[in-house]
Amino acid sequence: MLDIIIDFFIIGTKIGLILLPLILAVAYTTYAERKIIGYMQMRVGPNRVGPKGWLQPIADVIKLLMKEVVIPSGANKGLFLLAPILFIAPSFAAWAVIPFDAELVLANSDVGLLYILAMTSIAVYGVIIAGWASNSKYALLGSLRSASQIISYEIAMGFALVGVLMASGSMNLGEIVKGQEGGFWHWYWIPLLPLLVIYWISGVAETNRAPFDLPEGESEIVAGFHVEYAGISFALFFLAEYANMILISVLTALFFFGGWLNPFQGIPFIEGITNWVPGIAWLLLKAGFFLFLMIWLRATFPRYRYDQIMRLGWKVFIPVTVVWLMILTFMIKAGVGPWFTGRGVF
C-alpha cells in the first residue's frame, strides 16, 4: 500500500513540476502579448501594476478569481460548468509526453505523437459544449465555427505530422528529436519545409488565434463560444488558449527545429563554447521564438473570411501535404543527406 502512495506522490510531483511553470508561463505570455502588441501599435502596454507592469498578470488572475460566475438562465448548468474543464484538461494532459531534454520527460511513450494529436482533438468538446450549454445564439454560432475549423485543420496538421514520422521513423518524440542530431542543417525544417509551414499555420488555426479567430469574432458574434462565461470559468478558457499556444510552439521546435539540440552542433569553435547551455534552454528559446511569431501574426493580419478559412484548409493545405509526402518518400528512398543518409535503397 505504501509503495502505491509513494508512486502517486512521485508522479504527482513530476506533474506539478511541469504544470506550475506552465501556468506561470501562461500568465506572463498574456503580459508579453499585451506589451509586444502595444509596442507594435505605438503604445506602451500595461505599465501600472508593479515595476514596469510586471505584476499585471497577477492582478488579472486575482480579479478573475474574485468575480462572480454567472450562469445564464436556461443554460444546462452541469454542462455549462463542465465545458471549461473539458477545454483545459487536454491542453494540460498533452504535456505528459513532451521531452524537455534527452532524459527529462514524464512519459517516454512510443505513441507520443499520436497522443498529442488525440489530446488536441479532444479539446473541441469543451468548445462545442460551451456553445450549446450557454443557451445563447452567439455562443452556439461560435462553437459551430470553432468545431468545423478545428476538424478541418486537424487533417492538414495530421498529414504534416505524417511527414515528420516518415522522416524520423518513430512516433516517440524523443526519438524524433534524436533523429535530427548534427546541427542546424540536420534539422527537419529543410526537407519538410512545406509541411513546417502548413503545420505552423494549422497550429495557429487550431488554437483559434488571429487571423483564424473566427470562433471569437468579436466584430460579428461578440466573443463566440465563451460569451456567457465570467470570472474563473472564463479564466479557464483563457488559460487553455495560451497553454495551447505554448504547446504548439514547443511542438514546432521539437518536430522541425531539433528540440533541445544545440543549433551550433558540428561547428568547431562555437560548439565548444555553447556546450554548457542545458538542452531545455535551447528548447525554450526556440519555442519562445514561435510564441513571439504567433503574437506578431495577431498584431499584423486582419481576420480571415469564413469561406477563405475553409478553402485554405481543404483545397490548399491538404493537397500540398499529400504531394509533399510523395516527394518525401522519394527523398528518403534516395537517401538524400544529411537527413536520410543510410536509408536509401538505390
Binding site: D110, V111, L114, Y115, L117, A118, S121, I122, V124, Y125, I128, A147, I151, E154
Partner: peptide, 16 residues
Amino acid sequence: FLAVTLVLVYVGAVMV
C-alpha cells in the same frame, strides 16, 4: 497504439 487511435478517431472525430 490502439488506445490512442480509439481516442483520436472515435472521440476526436466521429463523436464530434
